[in-house]
Design a protein around this nucleic acid. Structure first.
Lengths: 202, 202
DNA sequence: AAATGGTTTAACCAAGTAGTTAAAATTGTG
DNA sequence: CACAATTTTAACTACTTGGTTAAACCATTT
């Protein structure tokens, strides 16, 4: 048993599978391609993950956790809604620049099979509670206009995630290359919180 | 040759294929399922559309046109940015309520194969020109704050499309059923333009 | 009736796919 | 070395899938 290794085989498989599943989706991915990407053979792949579904859920679970954990956390650490929004947006965009296809992957697969996959995003519900507290505080101090907190949260998520989800369409319509896209996201770390707060400040 | 028929067979196939492709995506869809949904057999399906790729592109082309045509049009008919935004958002949300999976379908497939599919959304580039004119006019009249027009357009699209794209996640986190989702979208026909305009008004 | 074109039937093919198996090879461990 | 766990090899299965073929069927038109 290899105890001291830079990387366990199971992790190498999960990394390779994440790359393939993210790019091609569950239906389009091939077990052979995952094995190749992991530098192993199909037999060993099935030795670690019995079938495609289990492998996929392993990948999805990890991706869902990476998406939600660090991002909601910054909200929990904030005690002011405006400041919380600023930090949330920054954290979200920074995170997505590291893994730009993540939101599209999660959303695409959630649409395909919500029944079995929704349980993996319950982390999001905890973050929602933090958010609601911050919102209630700001409202009671009359610092924001009258707005449905759920709707505000949808708007925040939309403004963060959509550029990544619609990236091909967006870069095509505006004639942007990868570098221009990156610059745009960097700008949005400032402009998106401004856009939101200007809209809700009492 | 059946000249007088409620619906041509080719159209029946395209309708069935749209339903299947939208639900399962190009990779997940099966030609047999399309044939069944169209009430014909596989041989006739290939008689009308030589292979899966051609059938898919036929569907995608139609979907992309339905997505962009009527929506950009209301912008062209407006001569004031604020009014244009109001009408654009209303038209977009109304349209999406009729075909809620459309944006997710287009975006998902564009991410999978941008190279061959991006040409089908060039309609969007024409709409962009209308929008830029309205924006320039409002700016020259000092009615809006300093903001990158491309970024504003991204924000508008994001606030319109994201609830539909992220629908399963959204309804799950907020514990909404189909009716609650519909009500939320109806509310957004008013609140989204307000949200945007409050943010950009000089 | 003959011809035409859309449609069905039913079988077929070649390639690909997830998953299995069993034996051999490799590697680390005591 | 001996033992056990990991990894490879290579073949094989059962099944699915896109696509093809050829003959027959049927409704209209000519």
């Amino acid at each position: 048993m290899a105890t001291v290794k830079e990387e366990t085989t199971e992790q190498r498989i999960l990394d390779a599978a994440r790359e393939v599943f993210t790019r091609k989706g569950m239906a389009g991915a091939r077990m052979q391609e995952v094995a190749d990407a992991a530098g192993i053979n199909k037999a060993l792949l099935h030795y670690y993950f019995r079938d495609k579904q289990r492998l996929f859920e392993g990948v999805f679970k990890g991706s869902a956790e990476r998406q939600f954990s660090c991002i909601w956390q910054v909200l929990a650490e904030s005690d002011d809604l405006f400041r919380g929004i600023e930090r949330f947006v920054s954290a979200y965009l920074d995170r997505m620049l590291e893994e730009p296809m993540l939101p599209q992957f999660l959303i695409s697969e959630l649409n395909r099979d919500p029944k079995t996959l929704l349980e993996y995003i319950d982390r999001g519900k905890a973050g929602r509670a933090h958010y609601l507290r911050l919102f209630e505080k700001a409202r009671s101090e009359h610092r924001i206009i009258d707005i449905d907190p759920r709707e505000l949260l949808v708007n925040i998520m939309a403004l963060c995630a959509h550029p990544f989800i619609a990236r091909p369409m967006l870069t095509h319509i505006h004639g942007m290359n990868d570098e221009a896209f990156r610059r745009m996201i960097q700008k949005r770390r400032k402009t998106v919180p401004e856009f939101i707060i200007r809209s809700i400040r009492a």
